[in-house]
Design a protein around this nucleic acid. Structure first.
Length: 192
DNA sequence: CCCTGATTCGC
DNA sequence: GCGAATCAGG
């Protein structure tokens, strides 16, 4: 498979949307995530953060600089616009949302709720659905790869942990990660 | 172990 | 230019 304009376009679009290289590769087909990443780099769009570019004060960058990127891409090409169900908010009853009302251990600093908790309705729906399939494991059953999302009231029997397989490095399964962490696809570091 | 992106280097 | 192998990390 070669990088046709269409494929490159898809690549750009998906990468821009924050899709992972593996997802993009799967979508495109015929390529591995390595190929995708390689291409991404060659295209010079490795940084998903267009605005505040992560400048490396360390390595003495050549003053070559220049290459100003106005970055004004009117790219409203809907094409294969993914369906956007957008469940109405009526899909909530009283699921004892674990999104809040969570027991805080002892630490007092609890800023993770600066402003309104606006969790995407899709994410919520996902959680509600996944909670049905939750393994409902106990505290003792938690392992390195079980979702540690608490459900219910710890003061009652009506309490368990999700227990579904976690994503990777994260303490929760995919669905709960979605609720816990906002689509903040701006983790740029690495100290290599 | 699962996954992520980053980099290298032979092709 | 390409991407598998490798690296570094969550």
């Amino acid at each position: 498979m070669s990088w046709t304009d269409e494929r490159v376009e898809t690549l750009k679009k998906m990468w821009g949307e924050g899709q992972s290289a593996s997802q993009i590769a799967k979508e495109l087909g015929g390529v591995t995530r390595n190929a995708v990443i390689g291409k991404v780099h060659r295209l010079g769009l490795s940084n998903r953060t267009s605005g505040a570019a992560a400048s490396k004060p360390e390595t003495k960058e050549k003053p070559a600089a220049a290459a100003p990127k106005p970055e004004a891409k009117p790219r409203p090409q809907p094409k294969t616009e993914a369906a956007r169900p957008v469940q109405d908010p009526a899909s909530e009853q009283k699921p004892a949302g674990p999104a809040r009302r969570q027991i805080i251990p002892a630490g007092q600093p609890l800023p993770p709720q600066p402003s309104a908790n606006e969790i995407s309705p899709e994410a919520l729906a996902k959680v509600n659905e996944i909670e049905k399939k939750a393994k409902k494991i106990s505290l003792m059953e938690l392992t390195e790869r079980t979702c540690k999302w608490p459900v219910g009231d710890p003061a009652t029997e009506d309490f368990w942990f999700c227990g579904l397989p976690v994503q990777a490095g994260k303490p929760y399964c995919e669905a709960h990660v979605g609720v816990a962490f906002q689509p903040m696809s701006a983790r740029r570091d690495r100290k290599r």
